[in-house]
Write a protein that binds this DNA or RNA. Structure first.
Lengths: 225, 225
DNA sequence: TGTAATGTTTACCAATCGGTCAAATTATCC
DNA sequence: GGATAATTTGACCGATTGGTAAACATTACA
């Protein structure tokens, strides 16, 4: 897996002797991964069953296992596919841009992803929460490299006084956690806000608050110059 | 369950005809809940098995089921016990105190809990992440009430100009998410920081950054007065 | 249109799941 | 010390788990 090049499908059905993927293969694999995302994101790997996924996908269990040999293979394929798009916002973080504007739009993009792709967020949350047994290598390798790279950008901004001096890693963690919170802890957020504030407006409220928090919190210290 | 009074053990072993709890009961229940916390926090409810818990607890499965009739009962007891202490920091939030100092110490306390009780944090994270099927009532009732109360305090501080005008609910969410992140996403944090920064010092770094972020981000707007 | 490759289903498997039962063991208390 | 209650265990249950075998159906292509 890599974080910089585009992901490519690698699944080869068990019975397929040809190398070319048929139309049916594409459709069914799509259908299965869609269902798997539903189930894995809601119950985690261990808590999910092939039968559940098969039911959601609307096909028989053996049929599903024709396309993905094992439960692990399905999970693996799903993670591979989602990981690339999930890091898109961080990758877009531009060293040449205006720091305040870059941070603002990073927050906004992450928040949009939490709103539009909550299952993807929960898939990762479940995985990491349970010790990341299937993606540890990706975290320690490519993810760390990407974060290291962007942390260096932030550090440079701080050094040149464009933003306040701060630990870039913990800044990134904070943006991750605050934004993904709205996907991962959705039930709690809804419960606390109550019905009256649980509409889609809450994402606008969240965006406004988070921008205020981060832009304000990172404003260059006035006591130095 | 209540969030304001102290929790009290209510488990009654299936075979116990007396009302008094014996020494053995106390010890074994303690032992079981300790093991259950290990397992549930690592795999979520659906992903955990009674056999796993029994093994960790060092006793036979039927013996464990003698003290807790069902898997649900164990989970319930665990949640009940942990929920009270988990909200202690928010409860300590003092309307009469100095706003900046209250927020600072709230962050610090939450961060300390993430460091000292990561399993408890993950237990809730797993539960909420998977739709909070067992604690929905607690979230919508007592938790919401507690948060509502503290949100009002924050709103008053903002109104009187002691801190910047902001949405108090999203402020609380942000503190929750940023601090608990270090428990719930521990593997990821370690992976990204690398071995060199994954020691206990990272909690000091995190505390410093978060205080800077929140105190700076909530500083009363200088353009008003 | 025939046929070989691809796709689907039914029936099934051993292992594990949550949980029960009755018998055996241990602690408690008079 | 003996009766009685509390605790522990091994054997077991039906349901569900991940996964297989092989027969059957469909598709693609010459």
């Amino acid at each position: 897996m890599n974080f910089k090049g585009k992901p490519q499908p690698v699944t080869i059905p068990r019975a397929a002797k040809t190398l070319r993927r048929t139309r049916i293969q594409e459709e069914k694999e799509e259908q299965i991964l869609e269902a798997a995302l539903d189930v894995f994101s809601a119950s985690g790997f261990r808590g999910s069953t092939i039968d559940q996924i098969a039911e959601v996908a609307g096909m028989s269990k053996p049929n599903l296992l024709y396309y993905f040999r094992t439960k692990e293979a399905m999970h693996r394929a799903l993670i591979d596919r989602v990981l690339y798009t999930w890091l898109e916002p961080l990758r877009a973080f531009d060293a040449e841009g205006n720091p305040e504007e870059e941070i603002r739009s990073y927050i906004r993009r992450k928040l949009e992803m939490a709103r539009d792709f909550p299952r993807e967020s929960r898939l990762f949350a479940n995985e990491v929460l349970q010790g990341a047994p299937h993606i540890e290598d990706e975290l320690k390798g490519p993810l760390k490299e990407l974060v290291d790279e962007k942390a260096e950008v932030i550090r440079a901004w701080a050094k040149s006084g464009k933003i306040a001096k701060c630990d870039p890693y913990h800044l990134i963690f904070s943006i991750w956690s605050t934004t993904q919170h709205y996907a991962d802890f959705d039930v709690q957020v809804r419960a606390v806000l109550g019905q009256e504030h649980s509409g889609e407006g809450r994402f606008e409220d969240a965006a406004r608050f988070l921008e205020q928090l981060f832009i304000g919190g990172l404003r260059p210290d006035r006591s130095e110059a």
